[in-house]
């Protein structure tokens, strides 16, 4: 597994896009911090970027890497290596390198700015944790789509649609349901619906650090009980972890049966 990981890394380290991604975050971090000079504002802007961009990049990179490395995969398949090792190794290669770009790209300017002396360190930390989770989740989802679709264009399109659905459309439907059924008790529904979508869940986890007062103040007891306690945070991270584990499990299942 480590060898496959190493070569996936090696392969990605030659791709220009990894550097573009890294530099983008580096630049974003620097601009936000040193031109804006306000940490809480920077964290809010970053959250918007992370919620939108990290899943998108994870999706695109995942699909792209899978299709681009088909030759490499075929080469590996004829070698005495387990299938699971090959696919999980490649998946981890992409996900870890993306996560590293994110952590380093944002981390360097923040550390340079003097984050460790700031109270915003936990906000920033929760931001990075959510970002890393989203990277792993969406790369895994992208691998799933690519594995099930030989046609590159179709796979790509589906992956983007999935992103669009989870990032935007889901919330639209969610809001419509809330407004339409506003006469009914909705707090449990709202809670479940927001926990089920990894983008919504990550957003709320970051918000818990930033806008907690608004969130707690304006909702019923269910929300308070859930988000106000460590139990809620544990469940939230459990669900995020599940969002990683289930697609990865499917990668293993589907790849074991697939013909090359």
């Amino acid at each position: 597994m480590l060898k496959i990981l190493k070569y996936s890394f090696f392969d990605l380290s030659r791709s220009l896009w990894s550097y573009v991604y890294f530099l983008f975050y580096l630049l974003l971090g620097i601009i936000l911090l040193f031109l804006n000079n306000d940490l809480s504002n920077a964290v809010i802007t970053l959250m918007n970027v992370i919620i939108i961009l990290v899943p998108l990049i994870g999706t695109i990179f995942g699909v792209m890497y899978y299709y681009d490395s088909r030759e490499f995969t075929e080469l590996l398949l004829a070698q005495p290596i387990k299938r699971r090792t090959i696919f999980i190794g490649q998946y981890l290669g992409v996900a870890i390198s993306l996560a590293l770009s994110l952590i380093l790209g944002l981390g360097i300017p923040f550390v340079a700015y003097g984050l460790f002396e700031s109270a915003a360190i936990w906000n920033f930390f929760s931001l990075l944790v959510s970002g890393v989770f989203l990277t792993f989740i969406f790369t895994a989802l992208a691998f799933n789509i690519a594995l099930s679709h030989e046609n590159k264009i179709k796979g790509f399109g589906l992956a983007i649609l999935l992103w669009l659905f989870l990032a935007v459309v889901y919330d639209g439907i969610f809001l419509l349901i809330l407004v339409y059924f506003q006469d009914y008790p909705l707090d449990k529904f709202a809670l479940i619906a927001s926990v089920l979508n990894p983008i919504d869940l990550s957003r709320i986890l970051v918000l818990l650090k930033l806008d907690i007062s608004a969130l707690l103040g304006y909702t019923g007891a269910v929300f308070k009980l859930f988000f106000g306690t460590s139990q809620g945070v544990i469940i939230s991270f459990g669900v995020l972890a599940l969002w990683v584990v289930l697609p990865v499990y499917r990668i293993i299942r589907v790849s074991a049966k697939k013909d090359f």
Binding site: I44, M47, N48, I51, I52, A167, V168, V169, D171, G172, F174, L175, L178, V179, Q182, L186, D187, F189, A190, L191, A193, S194, I199, D200, R203, I204, L207, D211, A214, L215, Y218, T219, G220, F223
Partner: peptide, 15 residues
């Protein structure tokens, strides 16, 4: 009107 909608705070759709 719908206090539960607060969970959508700062989502792209809301933006």
């Amino acid at each position: 009107k719908t206090p539960e909608a607060i969970v959508l705070l700062r989502s792209i759709f809301i933006d």
